[in-house]
Each structure stands twice: as C-alpha cells, then as structure tokens.
C-alpha cells in the first residue's frame, strides 16, 4: 500500500478494488492506476427480477447481501491480489436504490477498515463517464457524454477530471425505462432494451411516425409521451406488426438521442462524443451515433457491450481519479439514493 498512504501519492501502481451495488448488478473489480483492469466480475440479478418486469428493490438488496462476498472474492482471485495488497476500496454511494447501495457501501467501508487502506465514495454517474477512459485512455477533453440507461438519460460536458456540466436530461422517463415499458406492453419480456433491439431488426423503422419529443427544444429529453403514443397506436390498430412498432419506437428514441448529442457537442465546441450506460448497447443507437460523429468530424467513443452495463471496473477507475483529486472519504459516509453529479 505504498502508493496510497503516507505521502498521499496516488499513481500508476495504485490498485483500487471497486464495488458496485446500486441497482441489480452485484459487481467487484480490481483496477490499477485508474486504467489497467485486472479483473471485473459482474453478477447480474436480471433473472430474479424478470417476472416482475422491473427491478424489485427488496429482492435486489437481499441478493446483493448474498453475492457481495463471493463476487468480491472472485474479483481478487482473478486479479491475483492478496487482500492486504489493495491500496484503496471504492464503492458506489449513489445514485441508486438505497437498500442496494447500503450493502456495497457497508462492505467496502469494512474492507477498507480491516485492511487499513483508504475508502473512496464514487458517484455512479461519474463512474459511467470514466468507463470511456478505461477503454480509450487517449480520449481528449473536453468531451460530451451521452449517458443512457434504465435510470438515467443525461448529456454531460466533461471539461476535465472532476469538472462536469449537465447540458440536458430527461424530464420524465429515462430512455431505458421507456424501452422496458414498451417491451412489457408489447409482451416482449424483460429487460426491454435487448428484446426491442432484437425484434426491431425484423421491422420497418418508418412504418409508424411516432413523435420525436422536444426535438427543437434545447437539450432536455422526454420519453413518456412516446410510450403513450405506442400504447395508443397499438390499441387503435390491434393487428399492427409488433416488429414494425418496435422498430419505429426504437427509431424515435434513437433519433432524439443522437440529434441532441450532436447539438450538445456543437453548442459547447467539444471535439469528442462518448456514449455510456446500458442503452449504449443498442445496435441502432451505436450505428447512428457513429455516423453522426463521422459526419460532424467528432472523435467518437463507443464502449464495449460489457462496459455499457453497470460494472465495478468503472467504479474503481473513477475511485482512483477521485482519490488522487480529493483524498479518502471519511468512514461515516452513507448512501445517497439521489446523489447528483457535482457540476459547476
């Protein structure tokens, strides 16, 4: 633990154990120097929640409590590190489901105390921004990040490490939430993102002209009207092709996401545009995002599919940067389900 203590030096050799339990993935990872991923273990609870059509907080909390030690142990074995060789322990303290967050925060603080190493609190949204640096350390700042998941739809300007500006966000449902709700309504199952992605391949994205909300109204998003439009259309046309509905719905979401991301990059003069969050795995979004970046001469960053969804490697990476910037977080830290991205 020579790097993280004493003179406070946090460097390329500093090894951070990251822990993530904010929603329905129990994850742990070992990352050296903020970029070198030695291990990343993710245990998804998706099957536990599937029949409810969404994440059930109490079920998630119970599962995190069962999985937290086995997942952490595996991350350490896969990285080949002994417990006392970790230099810091980072955990997501928010935003997320409070009962779920508390399992990871409690375990992480206890590990830090037992090993006598710093504990670092990590903002889940900030960690998604750092997922890009894990795969592309050469990324140039400032960049604009479009963060789209089941819980969030944000456009963030990352000016420097720890320096963010919120450019736009959803006024109602998150994009991933809209995918889940529409998939559920169409009887396509849970999680909705991959289900719609699959079915949409067979459909015509121009079959139905669903609304593109707030298309000319700044950088905020709104998806609840789109969901209602899908429901109304299907009720009015009971024999419509499900594939056409899925494809047209997906096209409406992606059009808005890509248009606003482009507008944001142009507005702030960013040279790079990055995608993050679970919805970043969507095929159409990836395709249109790349096309837009090429047309606008922007450096594009597309995360690998495993880096889109919640994982602990991004927590450890964000933790490394935060430790370097701000030092350890006191052990009386709790969880904040509504934690915001610190902006300026």
């Amino acid at each position: 633990m020579a790097d993280a203590t004493g003179d406070g030096g946090v460097g390329p050799a500093t090894l951070v154990l990251g822990i993530e339990t904010s929603c329905d993935e129990t994850a742990a990872a070992c990352v050296r120097g903020g970029t070198d991923v030695l291990s990343s273990v993710v245990s998804s609870q998706v099957e536990l929640h599937a029949r409810y059509g969404g994440v059930v907080p109490e079920i998630a909390s119970r599962a995190h409590n069962e999985l937290i030690i086995p997942v952490t142990a595996r991350a350490m074995v896969e990285a080949g590190v002994e417990g006392d060789r970790v230099d810091a322990v980072a955990a997501t303290t928010g935003p997320g489901l409070v009962g779920a967050l508390l399992v990871g925060v409690s375990a992480a603080k206890a590990l830090a105390l037992a090993w006598d190493v710093p504990f670092v609190s990590v903002n889940h949204l900030e960690a998604h921004l750092y997922a890009a640096f894990l795969e592309d350390p050469e990324l140039q700042l400032p960049m604009v990040v479009l963060l789209v998941s089941g819980g969030h739809t944000l456009l963030v300007l990352m000016e420097g490490h720890g320096r963010y500006r919120l450019l736009g966000q959803t006024l109602d449902d998150a994009a991933g939430e809209a995918f889940d709700k529409v998939a559920r309504f169409l009887g396509l199952g849970y999680p909705g993102g991959p289900a719609i992605d699959r079915v949409a391949m067979e459909g015509d994205p121009e079959a139905i002209a669903f609304p593109r909300a707030l298309m000319d109204g700044g950088l905020d998003f709104s998806f609840s009207g789109l969901k209602t439009a899908v429901v109304n259309h299907v009720r009015a046309h009971p024999d419509v092709s499900t594939a056409d509905v899925a494809a047209s719905f997906q096209a409406a979401v992606v059009d808005v996401l890509v248009a606003k991301a482009r507008a944001a990059a142009q507005e702030v003069g960013a040279g790079a545009l990055a995608l993050g969050g679970g919805v970043a795995a969507n095929s159409l979004l990836r395709e249109q995002f790349l096309t837009a970046c090429t047309e606008d001469g922007l450096h594009a960053f597309l995360p690998s599919r495993s880096m889109c969804t919640d994982n602990a490697a991004m927590i450890a990476a964000a933790g490394w940067y935060r430790l370097q910037r701000e030092g350890p977080t006191p052990l009386d830290c709790g969880a904040d389900p509504n934690l915001r991205l610190a902006t300026f």
Binding site: E58, S61, R62, N65, I68, I69, T72, A73, G83, V98, G99, L102, V103, G104, S106, A107, A108, K109, A110, L111, L113, A114, W115
Partner: peptide, 20 residues
Amino acid sequence: LFTGLRVGVATAKALAFALR
C-alpha cells in the same frame, strides 16, 4: 429491521473475509 440487518451482516461478513 431489514436495512439495519443488511448493514450489520454485510459489514460483519466483509470484516471476517478481510481478516480471514
């Protein structure tokens, strides 16, 4: 109380794991 219990059990398990 569920939340209190989980904080205690997660903390205790992590301490035992770390201290072997």
